[in-house]
Amino acid sequence: MMQRHMPMGYKMVNGQIEINEEQAQIVKSIFMDYIKGKSLKAIAKELSERGILNANKKPNWNHGSVGKILQNVKYQGDEFYPRLIDEATYKKAQDMRAAVEKKFGRSQQFNAMKNQSIFSGKIRCGECGETYKKYVEHAGKPSEKIKWKCRNYIFQNRVLCRNSFFTEDELKNIFTEATNQLIRQKKRLDKIQPNEPPKMNLELRQTDNRIKELEQDGEFSSPELAELIFKRAVLYYECSKVANQKRNAEKIKSALTDINTLTGFNEELFETIIKRMTVFKETSVKVEFINGFIINISIEYKRKDGKNGNSEKDGSNHTATS
């Protein structure tokens, strides 16, 4: 269900994601308390003692749930989520977390790098649904290597997800190739017209009429009314996505104006036109643009698993498929 994945601090109103002011104050206080020097454990204890509900609607906080708040990139704002935390505050919190992890050796222990990247939050695992994160191998040594792996790759020293690894150069090459594929098919941007809107609009009207009937009958505590109100919000959201599709197609065409061939990675262009890139094990990366247009880039991948889950991948033979 859609609401289940809504980050704390937001709410859905008529299909649009807006800031939940009451929850937003809690999120902001977490960032400020952490920047002022409180530990994750101390913040969690205070929130629990105050009976503050977490994202799961329970007054049970721990250092992990506080940490997830601090690292959630959606608080910086994106296509759907309004900005909740200013850039300076967010960056300060990330820098402090990285410093704490380095101090206690956690960055090497978990092979993780928390510093943000243009790819943060944009790369998703098609096998388990988690996002990708940046890992560092042999941190601080001449042999240091940086790779992007599924967040579920390692948990408690066990390999949980065996999806593909990528260097940043490989991710950049995939984006460049997908964008060039899109440029060659630019006319298709105007042809993406979903068949769902008429049906959805009819269902929305029927749902809205039934809600009005229940309200007129005074059935305000009816379970059906609660379910229908949620359904209406979801339908509003779906309709708004359809309306945004045409605008986003124009945004892409504008961004690609005067670009006949993309010869190298363009960070601003990536941030402007890419919604997400989803990795499917040993087969392809699905590159989804902000208007819903999808291009699949096939990958040739071979993996040799040892105790440390090492891998090899041929990043030079990416081919685009329509």
Rank of each mutant, 00 (worst) to 15 (best):
K11R: 09
N14I: 11
E18L: 15
E21W: 07
E22H: 03
E22C: 04
Q23R: 03
V27T: 02
S29L: 06
S29Q: 09
M32Q: 14
D33Q: 12
G37V: 02
L40E: 00
K41V: 01
I43R: 00
K45S: 04
S48L: 01
H63N: 04
G64A: 13
V66N: 00
L70Q: 00
V73A: 05
K74S: 06
K74I: 05
Y75I: 03
G77F: 01
E79R: 08
A88G: 12
R97G: 05
V100H: 06
R106Q: 15
S107M: 07
S107G: 07
A112R: 06
K114W: 09
K114H: 11
K114L: 13
S117T: 06
S117P: 06
S120G: 08
S120E: 08
R124Y: 05
V136I: 14
E137W: 09
G140H: 04
K141A: 08
K145Y: 05
K149Y: 07
N152L: 12
Q156D: 10
R158V: 14
R158L: 06
S164D: 12
F165L: 15
E170D: 13
L182D: 00
K186D: 15
K187C: 13
K187V: 11
R188C: 15
I192V: 08
P194S: 05
N195I: 14
E196A: 08
E196F: 07
N201Q: 13
E203L: 06
T207H: 02
T207F: 01
I211R: 00
L214S: 06
D217H: 07
S221F: 10
L228S: 02
E238D: 09
E238H: 07
E238S: 11
C239L: 13
V242L: 07
A243S: 10
N244G: 05
N244I: 07
R247D: 12
T257S: 14
D258T: 05
T263E: 13
K281G: 06
T283I: 09
I290W: 02
F293C: 08
I294T: 12
S298E: 11
E300T: 11
R303H: 11
G309A: 11
D314I: 15
N317G: 11
T319S: 01
